[in-house]
Amino acid sequence: MGLYPVARGIYRAISSDHRRDRKLRRLFFAQFLKPGDLCFDIGANLGQSIEAFRASGARVVALEANALCLPTLAYSFGRDPEVLVVNKAVGSTSGTARLHFHQTASTASIRDDWNDTDDNVVEVEMITLEQLFAQHGVPRLLKVDVEGFEEQVFAGLARPVPIIYFEMHGREFDAVIRILARLESVGKIESVNAVSEDHGQWLLDRWVSPAEFATALNPLPKLANVVVRMDGSASCHV
């Protein structure tokens, strides 16, 4: 009946946990952004990160392959001229892919081995980061959260981006190391850190090199987010 986006908005407004999560996310991304900056949100889900980007005045190009998320995204951002939502996946090459999903759950993934509860499959269009750059420009901040498919997304990257943020799963930390190696192949990495799942705490007390990062996290968190500063053009503080 189209009531879910409305009900979700009301619930998030009255829930203290959701208000806290939004505040922490907003404060975290505000360290990196200023009004007018361009952000890419690869794996936008229901727009949690878009909210934080817009709170800093950034422009957003958001990619979300799950069509069931589009009504909520339209409800939240459809009247915002600074947000463009694109119903496509991102990978190493252009073409099509099979998305595994369950309703609007954030577990949706191109990988068929990612989550047993993703009980639906649909074919989706796939493009590359470089194609997005050609259409919209190079962003200041690139966020990638695609449930285990991050490595393939970065395989389609051919140039540095000032701030790169991507989801890290401790059980697949080897993929993080390969992603950092990939990023080093397209530009200079100035430093790396990680932030907790709720964006409330840096996991390292200083920014480190990619080589140091490989051993600095001990023990490995179950879930966190890696932040990479490239080219010496990005500035923020811990």
Rank of each mutant, 00 (worst) to 15 (best):
E64N: 04
N45C: 12
S16P: 14
R19I: 06
A62Q: 00
Q31R: 15
G36R: 01
Y11M: 12
Y11S: 15
G91H: 03
F28E: 03
S15K: 00
I42D: 10
V85C: 15
R98P: 05
E82Q: 15
V6K: 10
F32M: 06
V85K: 01
V83K: 10
V90G: 10
R98L: 13
L63Y: 09
P71Q: 04
S76F: 07
R98S: 12
R98D: 14
S56R: 03
L27W: 07
K88N: 05
F53P: 06
S16G: 11
L27Q: 15
V83G: 14
T93V: 14
A55P: 03
E82A: 13
R20L: 15
R54E: 08
S92V: 03
A97T: 04
R54G: 09
V86E: 00
D17M: 12
A52C: 06
H102G: 14
L70N: 05
L3I: 10
R19S: 12
P35M: 08
A67Q: 11
L84K: 06
K23F: 13
A74L: 09
H18M: 14
G78P: 08
L33W: 05
K23P: 09
A58T: 00
F53I: 02
H18A: 14
V6A: 13
K88A: 14
P81R: 06
S92T: 03
N87E: 05
A55E: 03
I42F: 10
G43P: 02
R8K: 10
R19A: 15
N66P: 09
I14S: 13
H102P: 09
E64W: 01
D80G: 05
E82I: 05
G47P: 00
G47M: 02
N87R: 03
A67C: 08
L73K: 02
C39K: 00
E51D: 15
R98M: 11
N87I: 00
V6Y: 13
L38H: 04
D41L: 07
H102C: 12
R25S: 15
L84W: 00
Q103E: 15
S92C: 11
A7V: 08
Y4I: 10
